[in-house]
Design a protein around this nucleic acid. Structure first.
Length: 825
RNA sequence: GCCGGGGUGGCGGAACUGGUAGACGCAAGGGACUUAAAAUCCCUCGAUCUUCAUGGUCAUGAGGGUUCGAUUCCCUCCCCCGGCACCA
């Protein structure tokens, strides 16, 4: 057994990193986004991720925190199922196997989890509570079923949430999604749009980028909903606009072809067939083609007109591919003069263009326009509003319409409800039963979990869940009336499982509750969350939503789950994220075998700051390996000095050589701590430790006497601190050294070094002398030399005198302990 | 198209609030030790000019600007990466 394995076993057997519920020490909850047990062996991408969390957790523990650092498995979901189909093995067996492999791998690289809190989302004792949460949402009216056109991934054979569609394609398999109308379960995340948006402001510890992405996703806009009427039938036809200042420029109206009113308006007319065909065609086009602004605008007149309430004008109604049913009212007023999309459509179909806003400095002639004028300007052809400019025009018209009853000021969000049902096998069953008499009946809490049956032909069919083919699962008694009932056969989106796992870690063994209020209250919110930015919207938005719902239901007392968020940069190989499917992975095992886990950890931390993407290359791993050997070579001959090292040093009494080392030590410790705390700049922290070791090697050892004695004392003292500083990064070698000095307890029960602020600054400092900002000479002076003295010194300097060459000195700028700049001309 | 982030040696990357650009490491070259190799240790290492120095000039994507002084602040442009993508 290697030294590293020895310590890995020690940590496990001694439960060195077990987190205690409730403690006098302050709590610190550090969490890594839990992985899919995909079965791939640990590669450098994973490695970086988990090592970051590991360093934080070890560092915090050494600072005296009661640290919770758990690990678990996001085990439900399509990747597991697809792989299982491919290898012809049951997803459950496949998953369990993978968990075993990955656990082993995480231990190999020396990650310190509290394994007693391990959580696996596909286990009934976990998903029981996922189902329970669903029932709570249902009870609160936050879960509902609706027949709706949804994003459909033809490859995964399931519907999918808006958040899971990336650039018009399924985020997992990259297949372009189409539309399919199905009965689906939704979570009403839109009810929380405003809170999800405003509370972003409270997340001071989140990257601005992530907050911005969520803000854009929620997409709040202010506008007016205005009531047009169909001239021929009198039907109300409301439209939503953010540009009510262009209301007098409306020359036609456009409705989404799927809009329910369209069916009514064309029924029995010559347009009926054309519209039906058009809608069918659109349904089959992928989201990307449908919604790209590069796509040609297509549509046609449907034989009816709409009346503009502000001026009574009747304008033709069109259907077109560029209007979305789901946003706003599914219908828009078209103002070709001031909206680029409408402009393009009007050119295509020869529709009139009416200018109602003109630039401040010139006139605008409709016939001469080559594109829509969308900038702010001055109202024209707008009745009594002519002459008003910019926002003023917009607000005046909005107020006027709001007051007239023709419409009202409205706020809209782009965020849509979260589609949570999936027609796949490997997920938590949705716990409801359908009864002809009682309708949708929730499964009573006492009957949870609704267990996922094992023997299922789980290959996807195409619109129905594989569970529908299991009669003993489907056919049940109605819990309400006892009559014949049928279970819901769709399963839940796995993002539900991962929207609350951080709560389960606080109380993972609880058999009567999802988590106890006390324990969650103690540990939550997560102090430091670490994960990839790819979840900026998906998982992070859903988890915030869940937390707010749980707050409203009274189960938790906080409204945001993650106080600080760190998004680590991914590891790339040949320009792409490492992944098994791309075949560009670099496994950790061979490197660990060759260099040891400490070296691999050290290297990945040293190669780049953790927030930055890293193009993998093992060029340089030797450097860390050499460094560790170098540390060892100076530690070993000094074990006696280390053992004799005093707890505290009096720097005032030290001889020069010793004092220089001591000062350097304090500088180093300060830098290491600051670098770790400042956005986890582990690379520069390690560089500082390297510099310190270089400095120890370069030190002149005094030959004899007190100077020698002092030197040895400080050397022993420093080496001990050095190993303590290295411990979070290279924990195995740190433990090994620590125990070899006779320490019985783990080094992680020791305190991370503090620095002595009284002995940190140099006595001398090198400053530069400049003329007009150009360096002429360098000078070593006493630190904090008075300005007047320094000024004199600079002006008397030979190089400065030469450089001035008789030019007049206009000014002398002195930056303390940094430079003197003589301004001359 | 809109919104973010970024561009520094052969390479990965440093640089506090505007104050010595290139820390630390890799690679490369030279030397010491060794029968030899490995390991280790020492030196050099942005470009360029000259009189080879403890010298000069130029250098942080390009061009301007502010400043005693700019990798850092402002303007214009180029390129790369990420997000959103007909949201009315």
């Amino acid at each position: 057994m290697s030294v590293e394995q020895k310590w890995q076993k020690y940590w496990e057997e001694n439960q060195t990193f077990k987190a205690e519920d409730f403690s006098n020490a302050p709590k610190y909850y550090v969490l890594m986004m839990f992985p899919y047990p995909s079965g791939s062996k640990l590669h450098m991408g994973h490695c970086k991720n988990y090592v970051i969390g590991d360093v934080i957790s070890r560092f915090k523990k050494m600072q005296g925190f009661n640290v919770l650092h758990p690990m678990g498995w996001d085990a439900f979901g399509l990747p597991a199922e697809n792989a299982a189909i491919k290898f012809n093995i049951h997803p459950s067996d496949w998953t369990k196997n993978n968990v075993k492999v990955m656990t082993e791998q995480l231990k190999n690289i020396g990650i310190c989890y509290d394994w007693t809190r391990e959580v696996t989302t596909c286990e009934p004792d976990y998903y029981k509570w996922t189902q329970w949460l669903f029932l709570k949402f249902l009870e609160k009216g936050l879960a509902y079923k609706k027949k709706k056109e949804a994003n459909w991934c033809p490859k995964c054979m399931t519907v999918t949430a808006n958040e899971e569609v990336i650039e018009g394609a399924c985020w997992r398999c990259k297949t372009p999604v189409t539309k399919k109308e199905l009965d689906q379960w939704f979570f009403k995340i839109t009810d929380y749009a405003e809170r999800l948006l405003t509370d972003l402001k409270t997340l001071k510890g989140w990257p601005a980028k992530v907050k911005l992405m969520q803000e854009n996703w929620i997409g709040k806009s202010f506008g007016v909903e205005i009531n047009f009427k169909v001239k021929e039938t009198g039907d109300a036809l409301p439209v939503y606009t953010t540009r009510i200042d262009t209301i007098f420029g409306v020359t036609y109206l456009v409705i989404a072809p799927e809009h329910p009113l369209v069916k009514k308006l064309i029924k029995g007319t010559e347009y009926e067939k054309k519209v039906t065909e058009f809608s069918a065609k659109l349904k089959l086009t992928s989201e990307i083609d449908r919604t790209s602004d590069a796509t040609k605008k297509e549509g046609f007149f449907i034989g009816k007109h709409a009346v503009n309430p502000v001026n009574g004008e009747a304008v033709p109604i069109f259907v077109a591919n560029y209007v979305l049913l789901e946003y706003g009212t599914g219908a828009v007023m078209a103002v070709p003069a001031h909206d680029q999309r409408d402009f393009e459509f009007s050119k295509e179909y020869k529709l009139p263009v009416k200018v109602v806003i003109k630039p401040a400095d010139k006139n605008l002639i409709a016939e001469e326009m080559t594109e829509a004028f969308v900038a702010e300007g001055v109202q024209v052809n707008s009745g009594k509003f002519d002459g008003l400019a910019g926002k003023n025009g917009l607000e005046s018209i909005a107020d006027w319409i709001d007051g007239s009853g023709w419409g009202k000021k409205t706020v809209k969000y782009k965020l849509r409800d979260w589609l949570i049902s999936r027609q796949r096998y490997w997920g938590a069953p949705i716990p409801v039963i359908y009864c002809d008499k009682c309708g949708i009946v929730p499964v009573p809490e006492k009957d949870l979990p609704v267990e996922l049956p094992y023997n299922v032909e789980f290959k996807p069919t195409g619109g129905t869940s594989p569970l529908a083919g299991v009669p003993e699962f489907v056919n049940v008694k109605c819990p309400k009336c006892g009559g014949a009932g049928k279970r819901e056969t769709d399963t839940m989106n796995t993002f539900i499982c991962s929207s609350w796992y951080f709560l389960r870690y606080t109380d993972p063994k609880n058999r009567t509750e999802a988590f106890s209020a006390e324990k969650a209250g103690y540990w939550m919110p997560v102090d430091q969350y670490v994960g990839g930015v790819e979840h900026a919207i998906l998982h992070l938005l859903y988890s915030r939503f869940f937390t707010k719902v749980l707050f409203d239901l009274g189960y938790v007392k906080f409204q945001e789950p993650f106080t600080n968020l760190f998004t680590q940069g991914m590891v790339l190989k040949d320009g792409a994220v490492m992944s098994k499917s791309k075949g560009n992975i670099v496994l950790a095992d061979p490197l660990i075998e060759r260099y040891g886990a400490d070296t691999v950890r050290g290297f990945i931390l040293f190669a780049a700051p953790p927030g930055k993407e890293l193009e993998w290359s093992d060029q340089g791993i030797e450097g860390i390996h050499r460094f560790l050997a170098r540390v060892q070579r100076i530690v070993e001959p000094n074990v006696v000095n280390i053992k004799n090292a005093p707890v505290k040093l009096d720097s005032g009494a030290l001889e020069k050589e010793a004092k220089d080392i001591y000062r350097q030590l304090n500088k180093t410790v300060k830098k290491v701590k600051e670098d770790i705390e400042n956005d986890f700049h582990f690379n520069t922290a390690i560089a500082a430790l390297m510099e310190f070791v270089n400095c120890l090697y370069a030190a002149q050892v005094p030959a004899a006497g007190k100077a020698k004695q002092d030197f040895e004392t400080v050397l022993g003292y420093s080496l001990k601190k050095l190993i303590l500083c290295l411990a979070p990064f290279m924990p195995h070698m740190a433990e090994e050294n620590w125990s070899s000095w006779g320490n019985k307890a783990s080094i992680f029960s020791a305190k991370f070094p503090d620095y002595d602020p009284s002995c940190i600054s140099d006595e001398n400092v090198t400053i530069v002398l400049q003329i007009n900002g150009k360096i002429k000479d360098k000078l070593t002076i006493d630190i904090n030399m008075p300005e007047a003295e320094l000024r004199e010194l600079a002006l008397q300097n030979q190089k400065i005198k030469e450089g001035l060459a008789g030019k007049a000195v206009k000014n002398v700028i002195i930056v303390k302990n940094k430079l003197v700049n003589v301004v001359a001309g």
